[in-house]
Computed example of a mutant assay.
Amino acid sequence: MPATLPVPIGFSLPDGWLPARPDGLDAEGVAFAAVHPRPDAGYAASITVDGGFPDAPPALAELADASVERLRGTAAQVEVADRREAGSADAPALVQRLSLSAVAGGSRRDLVQSQVYLLLKDVAAPLASAVIRLTLTATAAQHDAVLGEFQDFVRSVRPDTGTGAGT
């Protein structure tokens, strides 16, 4: 069963990407998933969305570290290829790119995962915040070809105030 996001968001999927069942992607806690229409060597690139309410004001780097450690529990090798802060003081974000080797679809694959962590502050309760994580997972060979589409997806993410179309 798909998870629920801590705050409603809206976004636009890149052209051609297909919504998928999050529980079919073996991704715990995922609220939304989509797959690329053209798999690479039998592996379809995916975009997933998950999130939560941290217990304390979160350090995005700590959340990113925890994600790396979770992946190390299931992948043969995980390396942080790049990590940088993004966003603004009002809407901080962190972007990281991971290289990993994991069994997917019954075969060992070299994958690349781009993760974007967005911190959404509650305007009614400034000390409260939610974190949304947007993730692109693709084969190493296909990652750079679909990265621009993922970046367009990230740019389309916005709070859903109930006045327009949501997810």
Rank of each mutant, 00 (worst) to 15 (best):
R72M: 05
T163Y: 12
S46K: 12
Q113G: 00
A64C: 02
P92S: 01
A64T: 02
G10Q: 02
V80F: 01
A104D: 12
L60H: 00
A104I: 15
D40V: 02
V103M: 13
R108Y: 15
A45K: 03
G164W: 10
E62F: 01
G73I: 01
T74I: 06
S129Q: 14
D55K: 07
F153Q: 05
R155C: 11
E62V: 07
D65M: 07
F53R: 09
L98H: 06
V116Y: 10
T4Y: 06
R155D: 15
A41R: 04
L147D: 06
S107D: 04
I132C: 02
Q142D: 12
R108D: 12
V146T: 02
S156W: 04
I9N: 01
T163C: 12
F11D: 00
G16P: 02
G29M: 01
D40G: 00
A138N: 03
L13A: 07
R133N: 08
A124E: 15
V131I: 15
D55L: 15
A31G: 14
A76M: 09
V112Y: 04
T137R: 07
G105N: 10
R21I: 11
R84G: 01
R158D: 08
G52K: 00
L111D: 01
L71M: 10
M1P: 06
P19R: 07
A104N: 12
I9A: 01
G106N: 00
M1A: 04
Q113W: 03
A104S: 14
Y117V: 13
P54N: 00
A81D: 15
D55G: 12
L120N: 04
T4V: 06
A130V: 02
D90E: 15
D15T: 13
L118G: 04
P6I: 11
P6F: 13
V7G: 08
A104E: 08
F32P: 05
A66P: 03
A81H: 14
E28T: 10
A76C: 02
A145C: 11
L5F: 08
V103S: 11
D65V: 00
V35C: 06
E79T: 11
A66L: 00
